[in-house]
Structures are given as structure tokens and as C-alpha cells.
Write a protein that binds this DNA or RNA. Sequence first.
DNA 1: AATGAATGAGTATTCATTCAT
DNA 2: AATGAATGAATACTCATTCAT
Lengths: 190, 190, 190, 190
Amino acid sequence: MMSKKELIVQSAIDLFQEQGIDKTTISDIVKRANIAQGTFYIYFPSKLALMPALAEEMVKVLMEHIGSKVEAAQSIKEKLTNIVDAIFTVNEQYPEVLAVVYSGLASTEHLKQWETVYEPCYEMISQLIEEAIDNGEITTKLSPKRTAKLIIGLVESAAEQVYLYDHSEETEVKKQQEAVLQFLFAALKL
Amino acid sequence: MMSKKELIVQSAIDLFQEQGIDKTTISDIVKRANIAQGTFYIYFPSKLALMPALAEEMVKVLMEHIGSKVEAAQSIKEKLTNIVDAIFTVNEQYPEVLAVVYSGLASTEHLKQWETVYEPCYEMISQLIEEAIDNGEITTKLSPKRTAKLIIGLVESAAEQVYLYDHSEETEVKKQQEAVLQFLFAALKL
Amino acid sequence: MMSKKELIVQSAIDLFQEQGIDKTTISDIVKRANIAQGTFYIYFPSKLALMPALAEEMVKVLMEHIGSKVEAAQSIKEKLTNIVDAIFTVNEQYPEVLAVVYSGLASTEHLKQWETVYEPCYEMISQLIEEAIDNGEITTKLSPKRTAKLIIGLVESAAEQVYLYDHSEETEVKKQQEAVLQFLFAALKL
Amino acid sequence: MMSKKELIVQSAIDLFQEQGIDKTTISDIVKRANIAQGTFYIYFPSKLALMPALAEEMVKVLMEHIGSKVEAAQSIKEKLTNIVDAIFTVNEQYPEVLAVVYSGLASTEHLKQWETVYEPCYEMISQLIEEAIDNGEITTKLSPKRTAKLIIGLVESAAEQVYLYDHSEETEVKKQQEAVLQFLFAALKL
DNA sequence: AATGAATGAGTATTCATTCAT
DNA sequence: AATGAATGAATACTCATTCAT
């Protein structure tokens, strides 16, 4: 059984996904979570205070998707392919929520926490890059961490384009995924 | 002299930039624009309805920056360098506004208009790519339009990282700009 | 061709009928009448100032209905039958408008004008009663004018019941009309 | 102690009586009730949504007036006399409120609820008529329920005429009350 | 910890009215 | 007489937040 806190976060994610952040009220969240209005404030001082918890959850989901697929992969190409796939999958499920998380719109105050939250994700990709550099698969003058961030930025924005803006069809999505991968391989000279 | 509608859009951009979307009220906007409360509603039914007009203005600013610099350039490398520079410059000036515009948070209802608004920008880069392909500067299997979109996504997210999330210092900004350019050149095999 | 003033009154009647007085704005009225916002104020100082003109129009319609039918009738019974029929017919066409006119809700300020407006209607029925008393058809201790007012009150409220509250079917309407006539005949010992 | 909801209804009745519906704002109502603005919206979504509760209260008051007087009465004539008296008394106290309730202006949406609200009143009179028919006091071909409705319509409109339109003096009121009673007795052949 | 009715400041929104053209 | 963009006071309504239970 979920704790009240988890119930709140889950309800918020669902509602943000369905109707957007602005149109979702705390009242909506507690109704969906089946808890009392006041209970919300035991766990979160405000609606914005939800954001870090929400980002954490999103990153957790993303990391799970990536983790399970990347371990099995051998080459850096395979690994990157799986990462792109994971990012596209998560964007398909939570386009609205990720748009908020990624663009950092949830008020300037929490932006710094977010980088912290996203850190493990950057770190993981960074590791992969470093290993690939070490064993000669990749040669680049850019630092692994910076490269990791550029990669995530590139892939996320590509995924948003198809899922959030264009509401593209399945085949278009596949093409975009293929294209971003090619672009990425070229950038890394793979 | 500016029309009332233009006054509203300009005031909104300024205020969003200064205090963010959420903290900016319609009252703030009309006060800044020096018009009556009701006048706002003659032109826009709500705050969110401002978004397309706002995006148009941002794209206009971006295009002006790009246009003036790109014409002078000769090679595709030079042109891309200038484009990246233009995008970074605009992001430096309007980080908050662009975050809103770019992340597409402005409610699901207007998302489709946005692609239309961004279209001239995509089209312009697309043209440059095509010319570069024609004269053999670039070889790529990806379509020019898709490549253009990937480039914009990549550069925009890189710029956001330094201006919105990290509030980086001048030197870090330069490094990021240099890095994204290198990444981009590699991706296009330049 | 209708004058602007007539256009305003007619549009107001139509709109009050369709959406009620409260939900009808002056803006609605001028749009329907295809005239400018300011033109309204040339003819009427406010929305409430429309009411007497509106009542006049309604009474005019009612009188026309009654007039054409009553002249042909011979006996007082026949005449009353026709009056009841006329009132029901007009109520069928303008239930909402008549509810307002009859109940006098359009603000206390114009109530006195209304009695003046309704006067010809009361007077006409009053005449009929008096004639019927004179030629021995009716015997009553009540004054003709008071009797006329009671009759109108009775028949109007009966008509409202079926058209406004119950939205009755054709057959129910006929029954109600028949009933109120019988009740009326009995009251006048006819 | 009164519930918040009752407080709202009572304040609304008082204010409608004093200044009419249109001039009474929700702000006025909550101030008079000594409750917060938001509390109003917990119980009623709008001013018009008050109407059914308001009608219920009015019917309750009317029924109390009638009930206390009719029980003591023996003959149907006495009973009707008391009913007319009760209706006139309530109309004297709440002319404005009753005008609203009775005319059904409270927006088309709630009209159906009103017949339900008025039902006990119709039913009560209907019972009296039926008893009077059973013990031979009254002979009529009309159904008791329909007769009851006609009676209420007649008496209410007669009362409105003196209290709402004409603001008649005491003696005129008495005359009107006497007249409507005579008219009614004749209609029922009493 | 949990509740949910109550709060009221803050904000959006409406619409009668004006006035320069 | 006619126009209709502009006005801004008046009002409705929301919703984050509190607190007694």
C-alpha cells in the first residue's frame, strides 16, 4: 500500500499529465488521492514544493528504463540506442510532465534542486562516455559530463517535438528516433 | 506609435522576463501597458491566449538576430557559428520567456499554432542546410528540415542549460557555446 | 424598414425570450440589431429603460390578438373564450418575456409606468364586463375594473403554469385552458 | 444556532426584500451573513442557484401561516377565507421575494425544481377541496389538484397587484381581499 | 497524523457607459 | 445620428492555506 505522500505525488503526476500544471489545483490532487485537504500540507508546504519530488519520480522512471536496457548492451552504439529508446518511451508516457520538468518552468526557486535530481542521470551517461573514450570507441575533445548534457538535451527536445508538439504518428516517431540516433552517432564520430 | 495589442504583448514579454509567468497578473500587464483592464479582453480572452502572439514576437526577434549575421557569412561553418551565436544571444536576453515558449507549457490548446509560428525559423535553417548539401559542404542522409529541427533543439537546450539552470558565468557560457558548436560540426561532419 | 429604435426593442424581446433578461447584455442586443454600441444610448438611457417599451410592445401584441377575435363574438361567454384563447396564444409565444412583464420584476422604478401601459388592456375587459352587466348577462357586486384585473391575473397565471413551469404538452394545455374557462364562467355565474 | 447554509438563505431573503435581486450582490449576502466570501460557493455555485432554497423557505413560511389557521376552521368557506388571508399576509411581508419566486424569473434552469417545491402547498389545498367535494360542500367537474393550482394563481396575483404594483393602502387591500374571496366563492359555487 | 469546513486575499472578468471621430 | 474602441468600476470567483476537532 502507498503512503499518503506517495499518493499525493502519484495523483499530481497523473493530473499534471491530464490537465496541465496550471489547471490542476491542490484541491484536485487531494480529491484524486482520496485524502483530506489539510493532509497535503503535512507533506508539502505548497504546490511548487511538489516539483522536486515529482522530478525525482520522473528521473527514477527514466533511470529504470535506461538501466534495464543498457546493462545488457555491449558497444557504446548499442548503449546509446537503448538510451534514446528509453527517453522516447518515457516521453511518450509523460509528455506534459516532462515538458515541465525539463524546461524547469516550475518557478526559479527550485531550479537548483533539479540539477541535483537530474545529476545521477547525467552522471550515468557521463560514465558511459568516459568508458567509451577509455576503450577508444569515442574520441572527443569535449568533457564527458558536458557531452552527456548535450546528448540529453538533444534527445529530449527531439522526443518533445514528436510527442508534445506534433502528436506524430507511430511511423513518424520511429523516423525521428532513427534520425536523432544517426545525428548523435555522427556527433560522436561513431 | 504602438497599437494597444502590441503594447499588451510587449508589456507581457517584459513582465514574464522579470517575474515569470505565474507571478505576472493581467492587472500587472495592463498597468505596465498603461491601458484599461477591459482593453486586454478585447484582444485576448485570457493570459494563456497571449502565448501565440508572444511566440511570434520571440521568433521575430530571433530571426532578426540570425538574419543580420548570416547574410555576411560565406561558409556553412561560419553560418552555423552565427546562428548558434544568435540563439545564445536571444537566450541571454529572454531566458524566462523562451523557457515558456520553448517548453510548450502554454497549455495544450495552443501547441499546434506554435509549430506554425516556428516554421519560418525551421525553414530558414533548412534552406541553409540544403544549399550546403548542394554545394557539397555537407553530406547527410537526414532531410534538411529534420536536421534543422534537431539543430534548433540541440542549441536551444544547450543555451537554456547555461542561462536558465546554471546561471553560468561568462567564461562557462563561452565554453558551452564552443562545445555545442563542435558537437554540431561533428554531427554534420564538417 | 424598421427604425433603429424598433430594431432595438425587437432584438431585446427575442433575446430575453431566448436567454432571459439577466443573461442578455446590451452588447448582445446591439449585435443582434446590427447597430453600434453607442446607438443604444441615443434611444434608451439604460437596459431597464427598455422595459416600458417592451411592455408596450407586448400589450400591443396581446391587444391585437384579443381585438381581432372579440369583435366577431356575440355573447360575453364567447368573448371571454376568445380572450382566454388570446392570452394563452401570446403566452405560448413569449413565456419568458411575459413572466417578466407580468410579475413586474424589472426593477421597482418602472412599476408605475407598467400599470399605465397595461391600462388599455384592463380597460377593454372592464368595458366588456360593464356591457355584460348592463344587458343582464352578468350579475356581480364587484366593480368591472377590479373584476377585469382578477380575470387577467387568473388567466395569466394559469397560462404561465403550463407554458413556463410545466412545459406541458398540447393536450394538457387544452385541458388547462378549458378548466380556467369553466372556473371563470362559474366565478361570473355564467 | 443556524448553519452557514441557513444563514446564507436568510440573508438573501432579507436583502432581496430590501433592495431587490438585481441590486443585491453576493458580497452583500456574505457580509450580512457574517461569513467569508468563499463559504458562499461551498453551498451555492451562483446567485441564481439560491432560488430553489429560497422558494422552499417561502413555501415553508406560507404553509406555516396556512396550517395554523386552517386547522381551527370548520367549513370550506372558513378554510378558504383563512388561506386567502394567509397568502395576503405572506405577500405583505415578502412582496419582492415572492415576485421573484412566483414569476419564475430565477432562470429557466431551476423552474422544474419549483413545481416540486410548491407541490406540498398544492397538495394541501387539493386535499381540502377533495374533502369538501366528498361531504358535498363543493360540486365541480375540475380535478381537485387543478382547482388548487388555479386558486393559488388567482389569489397570489391578486395579492401581488395590491402589494407590489399599486402599493395600496390598508382599506384598498381589504377590498381586494374581500373581492378575491367573493370571486373565489362564486367560482366554487359556495 | 488526519480531517475538511471555513477563510479571505487575490485575481479574473464583465459590461454599462463614454466620447472622439 | 451613428459609430465602436476604449474605459474602469463593480463584481464574481478561485484556491492556497488554516485550524479546531
